[in-house]
């Protein structure tokens, strides 16, 4: 039974998640593309930098948020940067990208620290919504997404740290190579869930990590997570 569930999460659900993500984003962009434009200019003034550089600056560095709440901005910045590094880290589990090795490192650059940072910042985002006035404007989606993300990061970090720092025999200790085999199998549509992976200590933690990540990925295009894409469009209207 457990084998069956873990296989479901580690293989079919991953396919479902990424298919939903890709089709969902295409659907969202298509819906916008099909919606009518309006002749009005919706910008605010003064418009100091209306070039793509200005739009990218506002979209990636949120100077407006920095001015209004440096503390929140700090957490947001650290959080998003950590996400970027973790995406890079996961890409290195797929294959060994030379460019990423300019600074030679073991896979997962932060060696667990990034996970910790994410745990703390996710908790910060969650806890700030527990009190007024943010409690009043929050809706279940805001909490649920953070909780899903929190579990995904928590289990991912536990798994990574225990694999990295746990004193296991080399026989059962899993390496980047074992993941590459798993990911390559998924990418080439010949999925394998090797015994080594399945018998690794804390395999259940890995399954939980993948489960919550899948869930998050499925919800991504249909929730407020789409802000990561739409921010560029919305900001370009502000500067038009």
């Amino acid at each position: 039974m457990w084998d069956y569930i873990s296989y479901l999460v580690m293989v079919p659900m991953v396919y479902v998640a990424f298919t939903t993500l890709i089709l969902g984003i295409i659907f969202k962009v298509y819906t916008v593309y099909k919606s009518p434009s309006i002749p009005a200019r919706l910008g605010v003034y003064p418009q100091d930098d209306i070039t793509p550089v200005g739009i990218i600056k506002d979209s990636l560095f949120w100077p407006v948020a920095l001015k209004k709440s440096p503390l929140l901005w700090g957490f947001l910045m650290v959080f998003h940067l950590a996400i970027v590094f973790l995406i890079i880290g996961h890409m290195e589990l797929i294959s060994d990208f030379r460019v990423l090795q300019i600074i030679p490192h073991d896979v997962f650059l932060g060696a667990g620290a990034l996970g910790m940072i994410l745990i703390v910042s996710t908790l910060y985002f969650l806890f700030r919504r527990f009190r007024s006035p943010f409690r009043e404007i929050s809706i279940p989606e805001d909490y649920l997404l953070l909780i899903i993300l929190f579990f995904s990061i928590l289990f991912g970090t536990i798994f990574h740290m225990s694999a990295r720092y746990g004193s296991y025999s080399e026989l059962v200790k899993i390496s980047a190579g074992d993941f590459r085999e798993y990911f390559m199998g998924l990418i080439t549509f010949k999925p394998v869930l090797s015994y080594k992976l399945a018998l690794a200590p804390h395999f259940i933690v890995l399954v939980l990590h993948v489960f919550f990540s899948n869930l998050f990925i499925i919800l991504f295009p249909f929730s407020k997570m789409i802000h990561s894409l739409f921010i560029f469009f919305a900001i370009s209207l502000k500067r038009k």
């Binding site: 209004k68 404007i137 929050s138 805001d142 407020k224 739409f230």
Partner: peptide
């Protein structure tokens, strides 16, 4: 965009 992009950050 406006209907979808807000994260209810509260700023």
């Amino acid at each position: 965009y406006y209907l979808d992009v807000c994260t209810r950050c509260g700023l």
